[in-house]
């Protein structure tokens, strides 16, 4: 509770978290995403899924946000974080434990953070990671449409970004293009963690499920896909499936989500 004061970026969420309900006001840094039916990239072709309404951060978590977090939570500082939960290069682009430095501008998205670290950050805010369905549902939107994925130009724009190498220093999170809801940077900024990032890998009891091969390698990648021409979505699913929970990657950040109902432990 003491940390919440220091933890400015989360204040609104944290304070209101306990009383959040379907009618509760939406914190200023978040938007309400009305749920709906959507057809995921992988899974049963004729089985669309229902996504319940949820709140989603307007932008990815920045270095400044994360700095506040590690100030209040020393065990997540670069030098102290357990190697069980973060890889060696955790916050590797920062100048020091409490110094983001020139490689990590305050308003740029924080990257090189693991899934565990992202989860800890969001828990401290009373938020959680969006699920893959929630993230993908919101990511279909552009500036005017809730679902622009039928527009080849929309997909081509995303694909162009995926095809470019990372810039040495990331731009500010709030400069990214926003969709009609005001959610910025879903495309064209950084990859983002989702709660169930390894969804595609663990489809059965065994981690080395046979569907892994069918899903994501070579031409087999098209077998289970609902839209084999949606290369942009392929890219994201392939990217996520290359990860493990303690991985830290130079262009992988995250943003928070929240249920409309009071948050549960993420």
């Amino acid at each position: 509770m003491k940390h919440a004061v220091l933890f400015l970026a989360c204040v609104a969420g944290f304070v209101r978290g306990e009383e959040a309900a379907d009618t509760a006001p939406v914190p200023p840094e978040m938007v309400r995403v009305e749920g709906g039916k959507y057809l995921p990239m992988f899974g049963d072709r004729d089985q669309s899924r229902q996504v319940a309404p949820y709140l989603l951060d307007r932008r990815p978590v920045t270095n400044a946000d994360y700095l506040e977090f590690v100030r209040g939570h020393p065990k997540w500082r670069r030098s102290r974080a357990s190697r069980l939960f973060v890889a060696e290069n955790y916050l590797g682009h920062w100048a020091g434990d409490l110094e983001p430095g020139p490689g990590a501008p305050a308003d740029a998205p924080v990257v090189l953070v693991s899934w565990f670290a992202a989860r800890a950050y969001l828990k401290a805010c009373g938020k959680r990671l969006p699920t893959e369905d929630e993230w993908e549902f919101a990511a279909r939107a552009d500036a005017t449409r809730a679902d622009a994925t039928g527009d080849p130009a929309f997909l081509a724009r995303i694909l162009t970004w995926y095809g470019k190498p990372n810039p040495p220093v990331l731009p500010a999170a709030n400069t990214a293009e926003a969709d009609f809801r005001g959610v910025a940077g879903m495309h064209g900024l950084v990859w983002e963690w989702v709660r169930d990032f390894n969804n595609q890998m663990v489809t059965g009891a065994a981690r080395n499920d046979a569907s892994l091969d069918r899903s994501l390698f070579c031409a087999g990648g098209a077998v289970n896909a609902t839209d084999a021409a949606n290369y942009a979505a392929f890219m994201r699913y392939a990217f996520r499936s290359s990860l493990e929970g303690n991985f830290t990657v130079t262009n992988l950040g995250f943003r928070g989500a929240r249920d409309l109902a009071p948050p549960t432990t993420p």
């Binding site: 694909l159 095809g163 899903s215 994501l216 390698f217 070579c218 031409a219 990648g221 098209a222 290369y231 392929f234 890219m235 699913y237 392939a238 290359s242």
Partner: peptide
Amino acid sequence: CATAPVGM
């Protein structure tokens, strides 16, 4: 490379 989408 055989990462999906392999063609790209």
